[in-house]
C-alpha cells in the first residue's frame, strides 16, 4: 500500500514537533491533502494560542468547528476545558463531588496527574471519528491533532497507556484503555513528526522515534523535514551574495544525512518557499507533500 493510501485510511493522526518548525502549517497541508483525496478531515488544535485559522484564512474557532474548505474543518480546544468536560460527562456529579471538583486539591491533582489532559484530547478525537460529533460535523473520517509544541511528543502518545495502567477501573480508566488500544492500532492511528534540518530539531525527532519504538512499539508514518534551503541553482554558484544560501544548504544536507542514518522510514522534504504563512503556503506545501507521499 502506498503511503498516501495508508495515511488516508487512518482515523486519528497526531502531528508533533518542536516549536518553530512549522508544525501547524504541515498539519494544515496534510489536512488539505487528505481532504482532496475525499476524506472529511477535522484539524484539532490544542494549544493556549490559536493559529490554525490564520493559516487557513478562517475566523478564529473559539472552540467551535469551522469549515475552512470542502471537507476540511478546524477546531481549537483548550485542554483544561476538555478535562472539565470529561469529568462532567463521565462522572455523575452529586453536590458533594462538585465541591471536590472546585477544591484546590482536585485542581492540583488532576492538573498534575500525568496524562489526563492528553487522554481527554484523544478521547474527544475518538468520539468524533466514532460518529458522536456535533450536527455540523457528525463524523469526520480523520482527526488530525496538532499537538502542543511544548514537552515531548512521546508524553502525548504514551499518556493514555499510563492512565489506563494506573486507573484500572471506572469510566475514565476504561476510556484510557480504549484510547491506548487505538494508539497501538496501526490500521487506525498514526503519528507524523515535523522537524527542520537543524541540529536540535533533528536530535529531538530521533529521540522521539526511539521513544515511540520503546514505549509503544510503533514508528511514525512519516517524518516531514520542513523549510529546507533548496539546492543552489547551478548558474548562481559564483555569486558571492549566495554564499549564505550555500552554507545553510550544506548545514541542512548534513542534518538530513544524520536523520537518514538513523531513520529508514518515509521522509518528506519540503523546501523553504518564498511565501508568507497563510493559505497560499499551505497549498504549496500540500503539493510538495503530495509528491513526497506518492513518490512522484
Amino acid at each position: 500500500m502506498g503511503l498516501l493510501s495508508r495515511l488516508a485510511q487512518l482515523q486519528v493522526l497526531v502531528v508533533t514537533g518542536k516549536g518553530g518548525v512549522g508544525k501547524s502549517t504541515v498539519s494544515a497541508a496534510l489536512g488539505a491533502l487528505l481532504a482532496n483525496r475525499g476524506r472529511t478531515v477535522l484539524l484539532l488544535e490544542v494549544d493556549p494560542r490559536e493559529n490554525l485559522h490564520q493559516l487557513l484564512d478562517t475566523p478564529p474557532s473559539g472552540g467551535e468547528i469551522v469549515e475552512a474548505a470542502p471537507r476540511l474543518f478546524l477546531q481549537h480546544l483548550d485542554p483544561r476545558g476538555l478535562l472539565d468536560d470529561l469529568v462532567r460527562e463521565k462522572l455523575k456529579l452529586g453536590p458533594l463531588a462538585r465541591k471536590v471538583l472546585a477544591s484546590p486539591v482536585h485542581l492540583h491533582f488532576t492538573e498534575g496527574a500525568p496524562g489526563l489532559k492528553q487522554t481527554a484530547v484523544f478521547g474527544r478525537a475518538l468520539r468524533l471519528v466514532e460518529g458522536h460529533g456535533p450536527r455540523q460535523l457528525r463524523r469526520p473520517d480523520v482527526v488530525i491533532l496538532d499537538a502542543p509544541a511544548s514537552g515531548h511528543g512521546i508524553a502525548w502518545m504514551a499518556a493514555p497507556q499510563l492512565v489506563a495502567e494506573v486507573i484500572a477501573s471506572g469510566p475514565i480508566g476504561s476510556m484510557a484503555a480504549e484510547i491506548a488500544g487505538l494508539i497501538a492500532d496501526r490500521a487506525r492511528f498514526g503519528a507524523v513528526i515535523v522537524t527542520t534540518a537543524e541540529e536540535m530539531p533533528v536530535q529531538e525527532s530521533l529521540e522521539l522515534i526511539e521513544a515511540m519504538d520503546a514505549r509503544l512499539g510503533r514508528e511514525p508514518e512519516l517524518v516531514v523535514v520542513n523549510a529546507i534551503y533548496p539546492p543552489l541553482p547551478a548558474r548562481a554558484a559564483r555569486d558571492e551574495s549566495l554564499r549564505l544560501w550555500a552554507k545553510r544548504r550544506a548545514a541542512n544536507e548534513h542534518e538530513l544525512g544524520r536523520l537518514a542514518e538513523r531513520w529508514g522510514g518515509a521522509t518528506a522534504e519540503l523546501p523553504l518557499e518564498p511565501v508568507d504563512a497563510g493559505p497560499a503556503l499551505v497549498g504549496l506545501l500540500g503539493e510538495h507533500l503530495a509528491r513526497a507521499v506518492t513518490g512522484r
Binding site: 494506573v166 486507573i167 471506572g170
Partner: peptide, 10 residues
C-alpha cells in the same frame, strides 16, 4: 470521586 477520577493507586 477520586477513585473514578484519577484512581486510588495513582
Amino acid at each position: 470521586f477520586l477513585d473514578r477520577m484519577v484512581g486510588l493507586e495513582l
